[in-house]
């Protein structure tokens, strides 16, 4: 990962200008040392133990747990959900950022807060509200049952709950980015005779591509890893409505620890790849990180 530091002029320049005030001496070592110990104990160790436990019964057992039909079904479902959720929130993210960043209108800040709301809602409550809406005793439950449309305890419910918890990721990334870019370039393109769509595809999209990728990366990581919301709406039907995180829970509760950690290790690798992708994007477009503030439930 350190190699990434050198493949961009932006980063090396920032490194030179940003840290001129490094104090020397014992205080510095003590501070760095305690920060590293803290991060090692509270962040790195939980990550490492996943792999330690996953291979506790040996390599053969590890791969056997992954090849289990129920585990494979869980992987398929998780991929399917992400493949539906990410494009939905991608289109929403671009549309909302276009409206919010390029125009002034009344109630804009209320709309931005509304888009951020899912970050402030507990995942369990995100699941609960869909149960209230679509459950057997919910508002639409009886109608859905009459027409034989399965939503709760089926894939559509999992997709809806996941869309809810990941809704802000791409949108807030693009709003910040497009606000900082303004609309001069688009207006120039239009005045030169480009159509609206041409302007979007040839001017706006190239300008926001790294921010878009950044948002997709985070949205995808959360969509594949979401547990609380999905757990409430899925009904835990093995092989049918179990995503990978839910499968991990079931295996763990059955005292099948090694198998649980084996499936968990795939999710840990996904997290690692997300971080590496993020670091690569940071090196390529350093302004991205500066425009984004973290939010609850990110």
């Amino acid at each position: 990962m350190t190699a990434l530091a050198h493949d961009s002029d932006g980063e090396t320049l920032a490194a030179v200008t940003r840290r001129p005030r490094a104090a020397r001496g014992a205080g510095r070592s003590v501070l760095i040392g305690s920060a590293l110990v803290y991060l090692g104990l509270f962040v790195l160790l939980p990550f490492v133990v996943v792999f330690g436990e996953a291979f506790a019964k040996g390599v053969a057992s590890y791969f056997a747990s992954l090849a289990d039909p129920k585990a494979l079904a869980a992987m398929r479902l998780t991929l399917t959900v992400a493949l539906i959720v990410v494009p939905l929130n991608l289109v929403f993210g671009v549309a909302s950022a276009w409206a919010i960043a390029k125009y002034e209108f009344r109630g804009k800040s209320a709309l931005v807060t509304l888009i951020d709301l899912p970050f402030a809602v507990s995942p369990v409550i995100a699941g609960l509200i869909y149960v209230l809406l679509f459950g057997a005793r919910g508002w639409l439950g009886p109608w859905l049952r009459e027409h034989d449309i399965p939503i709760l305890f089926a894939v559509p419910g999992i997709v809806l709950a996941t869309v809810f918890v990941t809704l802000p990721f791409i949108s807030r990334e693009l709003i910040a980015l497009m606000q900082s870019q303004g609309r001069d370039e688009e207006e120039t393109a239009l005045s030169l005779g480009a159509s609206g769509w041409q302007t979007f595809w040839r001017v706006t999209l190239p300008n926001i591509r790294w921010g878009l990728l950044y948002g997709v990366l985070l949205c995808n990581a959360r969509a594949m890893g979401e547990f609380g919301a999905v757990s409430v709406v899925s009904g835990h039907i093995r092989g049918l409505t179990n995503t990978m995180p839910l499968h991990v829970e079931i295996l763990y509760n059955e005292y099948n620890s090694a198998a649980a950690f084996a499936v968990a290790s795939l999710l840990a690798v996904l997290a690692l790849m997300t971080l590496i992708g993020r670091a690569a994007l940071d090196a390529r477009a350093p302004e991205l990180r500066r425009t984004t503030l973290p939010s609850p439930n990110t």
């Binding site: 990962m1 350190t2 990434l4 530091a5 490194a15 840290r19 005030r21 490094a22 104090a23 510095r28 501070l31 760095i32 590293l36 991060l39 962040v43 790195l44 939980p46 990550f47 133990v49 996943v50 436990e53 995942p123 985070l218 990581a221 594949m224 890893g225 979401e226 547990f227 609380g228 995180p245 839910l246 991990v248 829970e249 763990y252 620890s257 649980a260 950690f261 968990a264 999710l267 840990a268 996904l270 997290a271 690692l272 997300t274 971080l275 590496i276 993020r278 670091a279 973290p294 990110t298």
Partner: peptide, 28 residues
């Protein structure tokens, strides 16, 4: 404020709790 070996790796590590699915963190 400080520069030290692997600073960028440590910096990326801070985001691990964001990226690691909560169920995985829980059992770990």
């Amino acid at each position: 404020r400080y520069d030290f070996p692997l600073r960028r790796v440590v910096d990326a590590l801070v985001d691990l709790p964001f990226a690691l699915p909560t169920a995985v963190a829980g059992i770990a």
